[in-house]
């Protein structure tokens, strides 16, 4: 059961377009950044510098990088609580994200949001959200606003496959299709909702087929191939922008780590062999080999890039470690608009 069904959409094995070489190399760098950032975050968590819940994105990097590359600067993005990678890929600085994980004043939400609630409104990055499925209707609302105002914006929602069983998913997708909204629902199917395998939670194995209930366009995408991910996302974005129609993308991916820092890499719910097998389809290894094979990079430049990324992550770590805690009076700010605090 662990092996995924063959994705329906596959980028044909043709040579990479040299005109997009910089973009492709950029994707590799973003994926490396996410990978090393998450490794460092795991380390900081074990040192007690990061508290609470901390959900790592290792293994799924190609999904955020490939899909976000298809968006424009005015588009809206919401995520679940496993959103460090999306925040980095959207362009929030590694320092601001790391500092937020550390709960520091310099974090992207001033230390108030933490790992699960990263925001940068200037980038249209409207939050990590902590309740499974809760942000799916919000995204429908943002798409509604785009249509209401007559803009060409699209709203993208990232969520895990476990969210499709809850009512919010159903209600939000129904309205998006009913009202023909420029929304994009990207289900990152990493096969496990915490420790519950997809087939133990959903009567329907192919999540993309859920879209049929709403007469909504849908696609199954190989999320371990950044190029494939990007191409599928571009199709969906075009549909949203030009036809004002929503899409459900079922992106098949895999989380190499446990559900959160308190969950071992393979607990009782999956085997070591399964995890090892999936690691062979590491999206970063695959993409760097492709770039080398197509002559857009060589091993030295990949190594150099990796080193450069490690340096950035180290700097982010140091920045976060040294950043100040929020001032005590911040406790009461931003509870209400227009007031310092309500007492």
């Amino acid at each position: 059961m662990a092996s995924s069904a063959a994705p329906r959409s596959k980028t044909k094995s043709k040579g990479l377009d040299p005109a997009r070489a910089d973009e492709y190399r950029g994707w590799l760098r973003q994926m490396l950044l996410i990978r090393h950032f998450e490794e460092k975050a795991g380390e900081a968590y074990s040192l007690g510098k990061i508290g609470g819940f901390c959900h790592l994105y290792i293994g799924q990097e190609a999904v955020a990088v490939g899909s976000l590359a298809a968006l424009g600067p005015d588009d809206y993005i919401t995520c679940s609580y496993r959103e460090h990678g999306h925040a980095l890929a959207r362009g929030i600085s590694s320092q601001a994200v790391m500092a937020e994980l550390f709960g520091k004043a310099s974090g992207c939400t001033g230390g108030k949001g933490g790992s699960m609630h990263l925001f940068d409104a200037s980038l249209g990055f409207l939050g990590g959200h902590g309740i499974v499925g809760g942000h799916i209707p919000l995204t429908t609302g943002m798409a509604f606003a785009a249509k209401y105002r007559g803009t060409s914006q699209v709203a993208v929602c990232y969520f895990g496959e476990a969210a499709v069983n809850n009512g919010a998913f159903h209600e939000a997708l129904n309205m998006a299709a009913l009202w023909k909204l420029p929304a994009l629902y990207l289900c990152e199917n990493n096969r496990y909702g915490m420790g519950t395998a997809l087939e133990r939670a959903s009567a329907l194995y192919d999540i993309s087929e859920r879209a049929c209930s709403y007469d909504m366009a849908n696609e199954v995408v190989d999320g371990q191939d950044v190029l494939t991910m990007n191409a599928a996302m571009e199709r969906a974005v075009t549909r949203a922008r030009n036809e004002k129609l929503p899409t459900l993308l079922e992106v098949r991916t895999y989380r190499f780590m446990g559900h959160s820092m308190s969950d071992p890499i393979h607990g009782h719910y999956r085997t070591r062999e399964e995890v090892e097998g999936q690691r062979k389809r590491d999206p970063i290894a695959g993409w760097s080999q492709r770039l080398i094979a197509d002559g857009l990079m060589d091993e030295d430049s990949v190594r150099s890039m990796d080193k450069n990324v490690l340096q950035e992550v180290e700097e982010a770590y140091q920045f976060a470690d040294q950043a100040p805690d929020p001032a005590p009076e911040e406790l009461y700010t931003h509870v209400y608009a227009g007031e310092e605090g309500e007492r």
Partner: peptide, 27 residues
């Protein structure tokens, strides 16, 4: 577009309202 009938889906349209407000409408 400004007086919108919804399905019977309170969670859904409440969330739609919150999302629209997050990006500047006043639902």
């Amino acid at each position: 577009m400004r007086v919108v009938d919804t399905p019977i889906t309170e969670l859904g349209f409440a969330g739609v309202g919150v999302g629209a407000a997050m990006v500047g409408l006043r639902p």
